[in-house]
Amino acid sequence: MTKVREIHGLAALDKMFASSRAQGRAAFLPYFPIGYPTYQESLGAVEAMAHAGADGFEIGIPFSDPIADGPTIQAAAQVALENGTTVRNCLDAVRTLRAKGLQQPMLMMGYANPLVAYGTDQFVRDARLAGADGLIVPDLPPEEAAMFAESCAREGLALVFFLAPTSNDRRIAMAAKHATGFIYVVSLTGITGARAQLPTYLTDFIARLRSRTDKPLVLGFGISKPEHARQVSELMDGFIVGSALVRAGGEGVAAVRELAGSLRGAL
């Protein structure tokens, strides 16, 4: 008998950040696309990461033209689409994972067009019914988000917006006002490689954000190794790992479990 989730949506995310904060670390939020390398293996990857201690998930919905993604995630999306993966399959994946007892927050992450084609209100409602807790749309800045904002508010789902070191005070104020759940901070030049420290522009930028918002800040793009995770953990409320886990996913579920475990273990 699986345990029924008592809280969901925004409250589940709040609880997740409170719990990782209480442990003096950032929340580990891996990204994985449904349908890569196969539908079953993508579910297996998410389950393996849950066992390895992931705090929550970005559940990727593949798109044919992902303009904000690098080659690894582009290629994975192409494979997923060749496997026939649909938006509905991605929602089914969340439902199946919940039925298997997965408790961690899950956010649907996908580009605007497939969600618009599905119907924005319908998508948000079905996402909530499937057991998702929020929505991340990389090509949807706050000023274009009205079509999702209302339904997310109604269904109690988080609607996450992005900030980048290029963001000025006006953009920061806009994201701080409209984002729910957390703000996704994009590290512009990435932090790949064995850096001894995080780049100063990033620490300065985070300090600037902290002075302007209380919303949790989650860092994404360019985090691939345990030492990155350790550095980020001191600065952020959470961090996302995408490409590195997707690359591991190409090798198999065991590789995903191992990498996720080492990232989580570094915190």
């Binding site: 303009i67 605007a112 800045p141 274009e144 900030l163 980048a164 290029t166 994009v186």
Partner: peptide
């Protein structure tokens, strides 16, 4: 002002390039 021709147009891009568009 938002870049719309009736109901078409707008700015559906990653946040990183919004300041560049501004």
């Amino acid at each position: 002002a938002r870049g719309y021709f009736g109901e078409f147009g707008g700015r559906f891009v990653p946040e990183t390039i919004i300041p560049a568009l501004d």
